[in-house]
Design a protein around this nucleic acid. Structure first.
Lengths: 357, 357
DNA sequence: CTGTTAGCGCTTTCAC
DNA sequence: GTGAAAGCGCTAACAG
């Protein structure tokens, strides 16, 4: 992590001459057109002859002209910025999503304004402040519910909303089918012969969220095979490894502990594994465990999981943003990406002496 | 991860009346002063009577006035934005750093512009583009070297640079002492009686970096106790778990494998552990292993490591930004934060039959 | 299809 | 200590 001046770089960086700033007017002159025409040509508006536009574009390219977002915005144009709103940053899911969003938005020459909105106060602050001065052209909310009032407020300012990793009927979104993911977990566990399957349900205490499909899928799968859900086998906690470990302790403290555990995320699952091991039990011999995500460390832990395409959700959401910004009317409003079971070595049939059926 | 309109929220969001936008002139009128005075008062410049300033501030507060960054910048002021440049986003270290930076910068009413600069092309793009139009007031580079030319280019535009998680003599920085961290690892391992200590050295292939203190500390510690470094015991790889696993394979393929392994990061260490286990060996009985970071999952894996205060590095760097922006001259230009060894259960004395001394 | 013109909301000289 | 006025660089009506 050392930082030092590296002298043997492979590119030259021309020194800027601050005294000679390059404005649109310069490009216009170089192309032999008026300022207005240059503006139209660059912004891709209609009503410019193809040859003229080409000339302007060439001149701009030649002089490596970069427009001033400030001036553009002030004059009523777009800001060239999009806000990405995330409830967490350091967790893998959110970081990966950010990386994906950033990658395609930057490609489209849009700047990314990061908004970390943890609790309710941040959230309120965000939705009160942002619209006040149109700082962005669109906002992407990552796994984060937006109220209708909030949406309308933004819409009033001409700011679009797109959701990544979550769903809503009102604005475009891309997500996975959480209930289907839960069912993939359950199908695997049931097929292996497990009957006492616990669930470590994760919820974010700071975010008001509807009951997740990851939970409903569990109950649905159980009911379908005629197993009555046992409340003792469901424990709710925050996302995160330590919390998973604690939740697992509770599951080990009941009269008839489960033979298999379904955790809402890999991180939670990894925490649960620690508790199991500390109890002197083995995975998967004594207890099977499955997570959701396919976190990079899951493969290193040999954790069976359901993979969700996080990066792809991000890029897809970003493309939704671009399409919306372009004013495309026939935008695909809902994209649901497929998940898949990844079988590794944290699952096995239950020990014969522990089978309950 | 479901997103839905939540109706029972605990705050009211007033609908914006887009037709009545609030400008500085309105605040000025309300305070009974001229536009110029209002501007001066708000920007905290000298030459305004204390009472006048108070009146303006009150009016602004009352009307919950928010300045337009666009107009401010256009007129020669600050942008109210700072760029954060990171080579990765989804890795824990960088996400945590971002979270910390964001937290204090937002507190100071600055917006965070995220720049993911992966390879050389991105980097070039960044340093060519950003200065062209002053989009930000300062840039924070996270674990990322900046060339002198690049720095000067930014300085010319009045943009400050601050480094987080890396060091440089020219601009303010905050980091840890990598060499010291390495020595903490080595002291622990040597004290336990290990002599054949391997190092899995991690480097980012996309970033031109000076040899890390994490490596030099290893060699220094070895030499100090009179152990001749064995080239076979050092393997270099990319950061990341899979890479750590592969590196460990190589260490297991030499004539005399190590009794202990020092990995440059916890993620690398976790990968290495998988390889060790798959080889039928046990940690720490057969091989001890130590990482650096204290990644949240490290405690779940029971990994001995050297903790570095990532979040604190971020907040400190952000405060450096604020001080610099405030024009403070006597800014602490270099902050080096302490690291500490966290002993868990991945280290133990070497097996007597494997000791080589 | 292209050029002219009037601001966008603020900061900053300048006078007073 | 305060006010008046001149832009910052661009877009969006308008004319032509």
């Amino acid at each position: 992590m050392q930082i030092a001046s590296v002298s043997d770089r492979c590119y030259r960086l021309p020194m800027v001459d601050t005294s000679a700033k390059l404005n649109l007017i310069d490009v216009a002159r170089a192309a032999g057109v008026s300022l207005a025409t240059a503006s139209r040509a660059l912004s891709g508006a209609y009503g410019v002859a193809a040859t003229t536009r080409a000339r302007v574009l060439a001149a701009a390219e030649e002089m490596s002209y970069v427009a001033s977002p400030e001036a553009a915005r002030l004059a009523g144009g777009a800001t060239g910025r999009v806000a990405v709103v995330v409830p967490h940053i350091s967790r893998w899911f959110f970081g990966t999503m950010l990386e994906a969003l950033d990658s395609v938005l930057r490609e489209a020459d849009l700047d990314v304004l990061l908004y970390h909105v943890g609790g309710l106060d941040d959230r309120r602050e965000f939705f009160e402040r942002l619209p006040a001065r149109r700082k962005v052209d669109a906002v992407v909310v990552v796994a984060f519910p937006v109220e209708e009032v909030e949406r309308q407020r933004l819409a009033l300012m001409g700011v679009q909303i797109i959701a990544a990793g979550g769903q809503n009927a009102v604005y475009p979104y891309v997500c996975i089918d959480d209930a289907a993911a839960a069912r993939q977990v359950m199908a695997h566990l049931l097929f292996l012969g497990h009957r006492r399957i616990a669930m470590i349900e994760a919820i974010d205490p700071d975010q008001p969220t509807r009951p997740s499909g990851r939970s409903s899928g569990y109950y649905a799968a159980l009911r379908e095979v005629g197993i009555e859900p046992d409340p003792d086998l469901v424990v709710t906690t925050d996302w995160g490894g330590e919390q998973g470990a604690q939740a697992m302790s509770r599951l080990l403290s009941i009269a008839h502990p489960p033979t298999a555990v379904y955790a809402h995320s890999d991180e939670v699952a990894i925490g649960a594994i620690r508790t199991i091991r500390r109890a002197g039990l083995r995975v998967p011999d004594d207890i099977s465990i499955v997570g959701i995500d396919d976190h990079p460390l899951a493969s290193l832990i040999d954790l069976t999981t359901v993979r969700q395409p996080v990066y792809e959700q991000g890029t897809t959401a970003a493309h939704l943003v671009l399409a919306t910004l372009r004013g495309e009317v026939d935008v695909e409003r809902a994209v649901v990406l497929a998940t898949e079971l990844v079988v590794r070595r944290s699952t096995a049939p239950p020990r014969p002496d522990r089978r309950t059926d």
